[in-house]
């Protein structure tokens, strides 16, 4: 009985080994958690077309992705914020933008389910703790149709380091001089006001529980959980709802100034259709790669920015604007595979 069991286990194990040999292209990557849903969809769809390619991805956070990529323990990394010049000097990485996301400002106000309008400088002042009441004259001025209560504003922010915070603070730095001076931007900052919640779900928990609260979460997360969100005034002076269209418009607007390595922030973009708090998410690959691994990875990247883009919207990511895809393709073609 036991001998049979052992035999079976041995056979299964040897089968696994053999099948691992057969799939000899095994690629590993790690990084950002934000694009994880679409990446895992992509890997499984890609494997249907290329059964010999096995791509494993661990969503350990952008910071971890950059770190492991720099140490060379993984074949590709993934990050929401592009690498800084300092990091880029240590390890040369090609940034391949894959999809886009946006950060929405969500709130909890009784009787104001939709239609709250905010500007960048008001959002900055709220998160700085300068505007403390919902009926502050500055908020009333741009929301004449709303009945805003005499209620204290409770700020909720992310307590964990996150690309979402990166995009959000990057935007605030652009629209508020005092934010730039006092706080700055990064995946984690020294928050001057409010409470911290862990993850999108932590912030949402705080906002849902506390009347008068305001917080920021990813667009996907807000859509999936039907959270109310504010309309934000963009650089052209128009109040824009966050949506896939307005996020893609932000990228399209930045196209003219887009550098060759795509390391650009598209927050506060100059276009009347653009939602101002959006950003790319990137895959990091080496500019020179070897053998079958390199070939497969290049094939995957080409597929992801062409056929793969159609999976974006169903998972609430904004696809890359069409005008940009040629440029990204060129960048992928520049990868040297020996």
């Amino acid at each position: 009985m036991f001998r049979n069991l052992t035999l079976t286990i041995l056979m299964v194990m040897s089968l696994m080994v053999v099948s691992a040999w057969a799939k000899n292209v095994s690629i590993t990557g790690a990084g950002a958690t934000f694009p994880y849903p679409i990446y895992s969809k992509w890997f499984s769809e890609f494997q249907k077309i290329h059964p010999d390619a096995q791509i494993d991805y661990q969503s350990i956070g952008s910071g971890g992705g950059i770190r492991q990529f720099a140490e060379g323990t993984i074949d590709f990394g993934a990050t929401d914020a592009p690498m800084t010049d300092e990091q880029n000097a240590k390890v040369s990485a090609l940034h391949i933008p894959t999809v886009m996301g946006a950060v929405v400002v969500t709130y909890n106000l009784k009787g104001v389910a939709t239609g709250l309008k905010l500007t960048g400088s008001i959002v900055a002042d709220i998160f700085l703790g300068k505007i403390t009441k919902w009926n502050d004259p500055k908020i009333l001025e741009i929301n004449p149709g709303l009945k805003l209560p005499d209620l204290a504003i409770m700020v909720a922010h992310r307590s964990d380091g996150s690309g979402t915070t990166g995009i959000f603070t990057d935007y605030l730095v652009k629209v508020s001089a005092s934010w730039k001076e006092k706080v700055g931007h990064g995946t984690a900052v020294n928050w001057p006001a409010g409470l911290g919640g862990k993850g999108n779900e932590g912030v949402t928990g705080l906002v849902k529980q506390t009347p008068g609260s305001i917080g920021y979460v990813e667009l996907i997360y807000a859509e999936n959980n039907k959270l109310p969100y504010a309309t934000i005034k963009n650089k052209a002076g128009i109040f824009v709802d966050p949506s896939m269209k307005s996020v893609s418009a932000a990228a399209a607007a930045s196209l003219k100034t887009m550098p060759e390595d795509f390391r650009i922030s598209i927050t506060d973009a100059e276009s009347k259709d653009a939602y101002p708090i959006s950003g790319f998410t990137y895959l990091l690959v080496h500019p020179k790669m070897e053998g079958a691994k390199g070939k497969t990875l290049v094939k995957f990247l080409e597929w992801a920015i062409s056929d793969g883009q159609k999976y974006a919207e169903e998972l609430f990511y904004a696809p890359l604007p069409k005008e940009m895809i040629g440029k990204v393709e060129k960048s992928i073609k520049s990868i040297q595979v020996k």
């Binding site: 956070g61 952008s62 910071g63 307590s159 964990d160 984690a188 862990k198």
Partner: peptide, 18 residues
């Protein structure tokens, strides 16, 4: 008042620290 503890800072920030 809200506060912060040592172990929770590590858990919060380590994965995104670069």
């Amino acid at each position: 008042a809200p506060g912060q503890s040592m172990s929770s800072v590590i858990a919060n920030e380590y994965s995104e620290a670069t």
